[in-house]
Lab assay of single mutants.
Amino acid sequence: MTYRVRIENADGEVVTIEISADELREKGLTLEELLPPNARIVEVEEVEP
């Protein structure tokens, strides 16, 4: 499974990243732990691999 994640950074700019569930598991991280300081998740969407 892959996630498309929209993130708002500290400057108010919204960027989109895609990350797979396998990648998260391998790194032992959650989506929140990948965020840079002062950023927030705006939207998470599951996409087909």
Score class of each variant (00 low, 15 high):
1 M>D: 02
1 M>A: 06
1 M>S: 06
1 M>E: 03
2 T>V: 15
2 T>Q: 08
2 T>F: 15
3 Y>H: 02
3 Y>I: 06
3 Y>V: 03
4 R>C: 03
5 V>A: 02
5 V>S: 00
5 V>R: 00
6 R>A: 05
6 R>Y: 10
6 R>C: 07
7 I>K: 00
7 I>W: 15
7 I>H: 02
8 E>V: 14
8 E>R: 09
8 E>N: 03
9 N>Q: 13
10 A>L: 11
10 A>T: 08
11 D>V: 08
11 D>K: 10
11 D>W: 10
12 G>A: 02
12 G>H: 04
13 E>C: 12
13 E>L: 12
13 E>R: 13
14 V>Q: 10
14 V>L: 13
14 V>M: 12
14 V>N: 05
15 V>M: 13
16 T>A: 04
16 T>Q: 06
16 T>H: 05
16 T>L: 10
16 T>R: 03
17 I>R: 02
18 E>C: 11
19 I>W: 04
19 I>A: 01
20 S>D: 08
20 S>V: 04
20 S>H: 08
20 S>Y: 06
21 A>D: 07
22 D>K: 13
22 D>G: 09
23 E>V: 10
24 L>P: 01
24 L>G: 01
24 L>Q: 01
25 R>V: 09
25 R>L: 11
26 E>R: 14
26 E>W: 12
27 K>M: 09
27 K>C: 07
27 K>G: 06
28 G>T: 03
29 L>H: 04
30 T>G: 04
31 L>D: 00
31 L>A: 01
31 L>P: 01
31 L>V: 05
32 E>H: 09
32 E>L: 12
32 E>V: 10
33 E>Y: 05
35 L>W: 03
35 L>V: 10
35 L>I: 13
37 P>Y: 09
37 P>H: 09
39 A>K: 03
39 A>F: 15
39 A>S: 14
40 R>Q: 06
41 I>Y: 03
41 I>R: 03
41 I>N: 02
41 I>G: 01
41 I>L: 07
41 I>K: 03
41 I>T: 02
42 V>W: 06
42 V>H: 03
43 E>S: 15
43 E>I: 07
43 E>K: 10
43 E>G: 11
44 V>P: 01
44 V>A: 02
44 V>L: 07
44 V>S: 02
45 E>V: 13
45 E>Q: 12
45 E>Y: 12
45 E>A: 06
46 E>Y: 14
47 V>G: 04
47 V>D: 03
47 V>Q: 05
48 E>R: 15
48 E>W: 15
48 E>V: 14
49 P>R: 12
49 P>V: 14
